[in-house]
Design a protein around this nucleic acid. Sequence first.
DNA 1: ATGGTTGAGAATCAA
Length: 255
Amino acid sequence: MKIASWNVNSLKVRLPHLTQWLADAQPDIVALQETKLEDAKFPVDELAAAGYRAVYSGQKTYNGVAILARDEPRDIITDIPGLDDPQRRILAASIGNLRVVDLYVVNGKAVGDEKYAYKLDWLAKVREFLAHELERYPNLVVLGDFNICPDDRDVYDPVAWGEDILCSPPERAGLKAITDLGLHDSFRLFEPGAEHYSWWDYRQAAFRRNMGLRIDLILIGEALKSAATAAAIDREPRRWERPSDHTPVTLELDI
DNA sequence: ATGGTTGAGAATCAA
């Protein structure tokens, strides 16, 4: 069982990349972020032709999340209970014996900005939701664009980046409060080293110079830890013409 | 501190 997460930065533009990558990588489950598509415009038929069922929660221009799966997704949730939020950033579904929660965490713009306050509040509410999900579904996978570097190994230049947005201590504490529920950063079960990134800015030839951040994560509950057999970041699609600024991250589970 | 690049959608906003 191969699970993936990819911020595609417009599914309309990136659909050819996505279908190519699905054919190459053969994932069983894929969480997408920044689809930037209203639900009525979701490419259901194209993805069905590729062998995937889809659930999605989108909006025009911004945000938007989707889960693709070989098997039928069930028990779908598109909102954090009790949070009235027009921004389409969360999608939960059961697939087989897994519970999958796709997150497009708020970027936050800059430390101190009102969007930053929204980010921290949103993270705290997601944590409460995930605590309940984990009680109900031990086989929990929480994946997506977290817009937070877990620690300095995940930043190309931690000195220059300092405590700016994506690396600030309150954001990292918000992420740690989630992993402290018993959710493991699966990539770090296999690779302890630095210089592994999932996002590179479009500017300043950042990808060519490997000036990146690792902000796309696949977290797994304790019950799944022993089933994890491999984790990777597939840099190949970032090399393709007109790429997303993010590249897919993957996890293999022996279940 | 600013700018650089991309996407959406038609001038900026978001990342």
